[in-house]
Design a protein around this nucleic acid. Structure first.
Lengths: 185, 185
DNA sequence: TTTACCTATTCAATTAGTGAATATTCATCC
DNA sequence: GGATGAATATTCACTAATTGAATAGGTAAA
């Protein structure tokens, strides 16, 4: 068997997150996923792709679906979080992202769900993410080559990354210092 | 027929870019692509994936390969840029990126190749990219909702994007004002 | 001469992603 | 009341992207 645990991507965590609020079927989940004022601000996903992700999550035992028939509407499959799914989501939700490239997709999603489900935990996540960002900065500074008069490609990328992360830090401070209350949609 | 022209991704442009220096075979191209002080700073690519990209570029008529046999080494396929490939690369090389998400992958690659092939064109590209970045900023400011005391998710993402782009702008100014000479590797 | 690593490419298999197809219900217009 | 089209809900077939392993000869060193 030897099931290789591939990490979930952002929209899969989002599916778990929306299902935490209660059972739901694919079509409705897709509407939530793409709502222009919500998760849809972060990325887009085609509906057929999302159905494939639901299958994948079910195969991994994180959600389970059952067919609802016998209604006014076309048959639909209602999915619910399993205990495993709930646990995975909760763990993920409170972990700051480990790499800058994940910031945009994952950290935003964490803010999104935390502000809905557990707003009192927001400060702590922001704080720990801030510390990680500052550690990234230190690593970049440490990696800078001894200054010479000519700039090479490594210098360019180092400076760029540093300034991108600085902008994350500034933004996190803004959230923190303004004691921002994120309005749940 | 009806060939849908999918846009090339960063590593495919990089392949065209390296082939502009002269014919080369896959294994060597992969070494260039992943050189830790060069393009390898921007992304990674598995070698089997790169061979698939070479096939794709050949099918699209941007490069052409011929088998070199009769040597000391294992047989290899030497690729060269076609006229169409050269033209596509040159056009791309001088166009600033149209969307912030491309900045990291594409703009860096453009700097990389321009600094090697046409350093006198660097200033102009930086200048035009700067203008585009400033236009992105204007759009974000225009999209900001009338201020209220509560912050919603749209505000968070708008502020974040704005600050990320500001960091690009700062970095471009740094390149520009320091009259930086990028050292070709 | 065996071992191990470097060169060079290909292949089979998996996973991701897209567009179109299917099928039912609902609202609206003539 | 019947036609038309939009909304609901999911599936399917196809293509593209990605990965790990397989193949196979060459070189260097023990």
């Amino acid at each position: 068997m030897n099931v290789k645990i591939l990490p979930l991507n952002a929209s899969e965590y989002a599916l778990l997150g929306f299902l935490k609020a209660g059972p739901c079927h694919g079509y409705e989940l897709h509407r939530k996923l793409t709502e222009p004022d919500g998760a849809g601000m972060i990325w887009g996903i085609k509906i057929s792709n999302m159905y494939a992700q639901l299958d994948k999550l079910e195969r991994r035992g994180l959600i389970s679906g059952r067919l609802l028939e016998n209604e006014q509407r076309p048959a639909r499959t209602q999915y619910s979080l399993t205990a495993a799914g709930k646990q995975l989501f909760e763990e993920w939700l409170h972990q700051p992202v480990r790499h800058p490239r994940d910031f945009r997709h994952f950290f935003f999603l964490q803010l999104f769900f935390l502000s809905q489900y557990e707003p009192e935990a927001l400060d702590s996540l922001v704080e720990r993410q801030l510390e990680l960002c500052q550690a990234w900065q230190q690593n970049l500074l440490a990696a800078r080559e001894s200054s010479s008069n000519s700039i090479d490609f490594a210098d360019l990328t180092n400076r760029f990354r540093h300034s991108q992360i600085q902008s994350m830090i500034d933004w996190l401070f803004w959230i923190k210092s303004e004691k921002i209350k994120i309005k749940p949609k």
